[in-house]
Design a protein around this nucleic acid. Structure first.
Lengths: 245, 245
DNA sequence: GGATCTAGTTTACATTGTAAATAGCAAATC
DNA sequence: GATTTGCTATTTACAATGTAAACTAGATCC
């Protein structure tokens, strides 16, 4: 199987950089960054469980073992994927800078993280759960550079150092909860498809025995993640305001 | 590997049952519940990555394939693990019932979930991230029975149906964020141990280039999860109070 | 020419999840 | 009693995985 796919890399060359010799080979040599970005794309397209070293190799037109020259192993590769995504996030966010008011600053940052999560719904769980580089970094806000900028921004708005840290933490908690929840519903069941094998050992999923749930099924049903997010964010901002004294 | 065992069921009826190796059961027939509980214990002790069908079999004194008579596969087994843990949670929580006031009701429930997370720190991520039975169930509050009781409680305190649902959602978001974060730090690095291979492709973890972080390193360092949890909970309760009108 | 390095491939192996066939053994049937 | 039936666990088997080690084709330098 694994048809190995005929190299869909356009051999366009286009390398008019300082490169001296002939670009005879259509195959650009591998490098760490290219592998990591390919992994990001691959997971976006096919999901984490499908990412194997061999398949990622095939995706890059290369044997699996070639990857090991640039990446210590699958586990570290996933760490790298997280860092790449967070870097992308950082560069698209750094421009936000100090806009006008601190509430707006928080708003924009929150929305930027949400967009990240929705742009990479199958990677976000990794961002959310992998152990961070430093133990005090709190996922999903785990890029040192980003945190630096965030704290700097808050400081400039007049918050005390202690308040800045507090805000960072609340912010992380809020984003992790809200986005993990939202993103989790996008990935519909993935592994366990609709074969309803008899694992109903504990509770019946017959709703008729749950009157409250039945009664509120209307309200429960509509997702309303966006609204929830905005509400909770608004609330967080309100709470932060108190810290400003 | 897989030592341990050496199967000494004596074929003759020699009565001395002393066997040091297998901990509890000499030879009771398997059943689904026993397997699931063993899986819970196993993950608690050894962590999810170490749980393989063969090892779980060995843990129960049985070959791997024996499990397949009672469980459709590894993926479903993990679903079952989640359900077992949530059931344990439900039974220890149901007694809480309506205590005195709704703030206290929320407090006790929140603390119960936190205790669950801290009692099973290596299982909580499963509870938090596996797709739930119904799409509107929000992890980690994913037991129908529990949700029913929760809504019932809130209703009895006079909240409107819409408010109940809203509270359920905020509650889930808060708990998911706070506990996932806390539990995540307990499992220190797990996969990637301290071999600092050169994956520092993007950011240096040299703190000297991050003045804000350095400046606030004091505040950042201490975990303070307990305090964060209580604060955020208090805040959530405050917000819920507004919904009561 | 060689020698050495570089970047990728081949081969190999232990471990995984799980399908299929098999064996042990109790109760049921003759 | 002997034998059939049914359940339960084991054995065997296989494809897929991560990764170590050996190998190889080309580029670079003496």
């Amino acid at each position: 199987m694994d048809e190995q796919t005929d190299e869909q890399w356009s051999p366009d060359g286009s390398a008019d950089v300082v490169d001296i010799t002939s670009p005879a080979t259509p195959r650009r040599p591998l490098d760490q960054m290219r592998i990591l970005r390919a992994a990001v794309d691959f997971i976006d397209e096919n999901g984490l469980p499908k990412l194997t070293m061999r398949r990622l190799g095939g995706y890059l037109g290369v044997e699996a073992m070639a990857l090991y020259r640039y990446v210590p192993g699958r586990e570290r590769l996933l760490d790298g994927v997280v860092e790449v995504v967070m870097d992308e996030f950082y560069t698209t966010t750094a421009a936000v800078g100090r806009s006008t008011s601190w509430p707006e600053f928080l708003q924009m940052n929150a929305h930027a993280v949400r967009e990240l999560a929705l742009r990479h719904p199958r990677i976000f769980p990794l961002v959310a759960t992998r152990p961070a580089a430093a133990p005090w970094l709190r996922p999903p806000l785990r890029s040192l550079r980003w945190v630096e900028g965030f704290l700097e921004g808050l400081r400039a708005y007049g918050f005390s150092p202690a308040a800045c840290v507090q805000i960072y933490r609340s912010f992380a908690t809020f984003l992790l909860g809200a986005l993990q929840l939202e993103v989790g519903t996008l990935e519909q069941t993935g592994a366990s498809d609709r074969d309803r094998v008899n694992l109903a050992f504990i509770e019946s999923d017959d709703l008729s025995s749950y009157p409250m749930i039945t009664q509120m099924s209307e309200e429960l049903k509509d997702g309303g993640f966006e609204q929830d997010f905005e509400d909770a964010l608004e609330d967080l901002i309100g709470r932060v305001g108190v810290l400003r004294s």
